[in-house]
Amino acid sequence: MSVSSLEKYLPENALPFLRKWFGEYYIHIKITRGRNSKLGDYRKMPDKSHQITINSTLQPQLFFFVLTHELAHLIAFEQFGRKIFPHGAEWKHTFREMLLESISVYAEDLKPMILKFSRSPKANFMASPELVKYFHIEDFHDESSYIEDLNIGDRFLYRKHTYIIQEKRKINYLCKNLDTGKIYIFKPLARVEKLN
């Protein structure tokens, strides 16, 4: 897939940054259906090319943000070698520089959040409550809630299973699946449906 064919997924003025970052690398971009487990993924292929998968359902600014995250993996590995940690200091430095370089692509109300995030980029998008809430803004009309907005003892539905919040540990929540009796850890920004 060529850089230009990504245009329909991107915010305005994003293509020049992608053209620069893609450079001479041979990159396969795969646009996938929405995945709950991840927004994007990077892999070095056996033939020395690179593969990036990214969810097609993302809003343009989030699509660009996730693509920047994945390209930062490629660029960091190419610059610093394959022995670096995937989300280590080299990746953080690379991602930070790319975010700052492309800050003009983002909406005015999003720029302060991107700047704040760039100070110490996180491996997981879900670790940034401001960004998660910003990009889920249209979803607030539905019946779902963030688990952090519920109380200990509240029951909720998640992927057709009923859970009860048992306790909070640091920032995560221990929840019991009432169908199986098993205990699971939920991140604070997991979207769930509260039960009365």
Rank of each mutant, 00 (worst) to 15 (best):
V3R: 01
L6G: 01
E7N: 15
L10I: 03
P11E: 04
F22D: 03
G23K: 12
H28N: 11
T32C: 03
T32I: 02
K38V: 10
I52G: 09
I52F: 05
N55W: 06
P60D: 02
L62K: 15
V66G: 00
V66P: 00
L74N: 07
Q79F: 08
K83A: 13
I84N: 05
I84R: 09
H87S: 09
H87R: 02
A89T: 11
A89C: 04
A89L: 12
E90I: 03
R96W: 00
E97A: 13
L99F: 07
E101L: 06
S104D: 15
Y106E: 02
E108Y: 04
L110R: 06
L110H: 04
P112C: 03
R119K: 14
P121W: 12
L131S: 02
L131M: 04
L131P: 00
K133N: 13
H136E: 13
I137F: 10
I137L: 11
S145N: 11
Y146H: 04
E148W: 13
L150G: 09
D154R: 03
R155G: 06
K160D: 14
Q166H: 12
K168E: 15
R169Q: 14
N172G: 10
C175M: 05
I185N: 15
I185L: 14
L189E: 05
L195F: 00
